[in-house]
Computed example of a mutant assay.
Amino acid sequence: MHIQKKTTLLVALLVVLGALVLWFSMKPAATKPSAAGAVPVKVVSVVEKDVPRFASGIGTVLSLHSVVIRPQVDGILTKLAVKEGQLVKKGDLLATIDDRSIRASLDQARAQLGESQAQLAVAQVNLKRYKALSVDDGVSKQTYDQQQALVNQLKATAQGNQAAIDSAQVQLSYTQIRSPVTGRVGIRNVDEGNFLRTSDAEGLFTVTQIDPIAVEFSLPQQMLPTLQRLIAAPDQALVKAYIGADGATGELLGEGRLSLIDNQVNTSTGTLRAKAEFDNAAQRLWPGQLVTLKIQTAIDKAALVVPPTVVQRGLEQPFVYRVVGDKVESVPVEMVYQDSDQHIIKGVNAGDQLVSDGQSRLKPGTSIQVLGDPPAVAKAGQAKP
């Protein structure tokens, strides 16, 4: 009986020991307490790099040449030589107009010229004869003068006939409508067989140049000195066009060069119009399209760059918190350039560790605990539903 009690007690002790071992093995490791009063913060390093500066604006894509194709003579449209949306080159045949009436007029003018030239030839022979006879008073001076006047008259008639021929040839050339520019054919307004008039305001269709293409935009008048400097520079300023209202997130459509600024400021809006030209072989820019432009106005060499969240606004000037050991110090800085993505500052050194998050609880000399980003596995686990 005594042995049985010992055995039972031993089993109970083993069970308790097993439970304790299991509990200690499953107990989470104790987190090392941070230093008393330390403020958790995130930090970034000051980066030194070349930073281009940009000015932004909203612009409208414009064709450098857009022509409404209209008839220059009345007649029936006999042929359309191009299709809607087709790319054509300058001088390509676009359409033809019935030319039979003009050709008949041309033939008539040529016949009249031949008749005038024959009459002129006879009159010139008679004039030469009268001139020889007038020496011996074979004909009167009056007869000679009349013959001279007839020759002059027939010369003028022949010139008029030649002018009629030239006019008819010009009219005949108008029956073949050729493209005045290289571009893209738009939607047509008439079909073959329609009677065209020169007074038709609508025209047959348009031919619009697509490549190269321009973008017109407006900037505040305060940008005038900068634009004048860019225009006068040996190399034209780089201009980037994006789709959408935000160039930072929009899709890049093309890169071009600043070409000109307007000769006056719009007094009602206080803005100045400017234009940039783009190579557009891929036809990503389209006439009438609204785009966001970013114009490179300068490049800061070896600039000290930090995220916008680093810089704090002080009463007198901006400042940053720089990490020194396990504490921070306040460093006044000068803002050189800023945008939504980054700030260029002076007053710190490349590689300095600056506080980017958690500044609200800081003051000079405050102890800090630098926080790192969550592990990648944890981030992936959090992203799962």
Score class of each variant (00 low, 15 high):
Ala30Asn: 14
Thr249Ala: 13
Ala149Ile: 12
Asp92Phe: 08
Pro52Tyr: 04
Leu133Pro: 01
Lys155Thr: 00
Gln4Tyr: 02
Thr206Ser: 11
Asp50Tyr: 11
Pro180Gly: 07
Val51Cys: 01
Glu334Lys: 15
Asp326Cys: 12
Val306Thr: 05
Asp211Phe: 04
Ser360Trp: 14
Thr271Phe: 07
Met335Asn: 09
Lys294Val: 00
Ser134His: 13
Leu290Lys: 11
Lys294Ile: 00
Val239Thr: 04
Leu13Thr: 06
Lys42Leu: 05
Thr269Arg: 08
Val185Phe: 02
Thr182Gly: 02
Ala232Cys: 00
Gln86Ala: 04
Glu334Ala: 08
Ser63Ile: 06
Ser105Cys: 15
Leu17Ser: 10
Ala245Val: 09
Val323Asn: 06
Leu113Cys: 06
Leu285Asn: 02
Phe278His: 03
Gly183Pro: 15
Arg322Asp: 03
Gln171Trp: 14
Val265Trp: 04
Leu62Ile: 14
Thr96Met: 10
Asp341Cys: 13
Lys301Ser: 00
Leu219Trp: 01
Ile76Leu: 06
Gln117Lys: 03
Gly254Tyr: 07
Ser116Ile: 08
Lys155Ser: 00
Leu113Asn: 07
Ala274Asn: 10
Ala123Ser: 09
Glu202Gly: 05
Pro385Arg: 14
Val324Leu: 12
Ala156Thr: 10
Ala35Arg: 01
Gln148Ile: 08
Leu133Met: 02
Asn152Phe: 00
Glu48Ser: 08
Gln153Leu: 15
Asp137Gln: 10
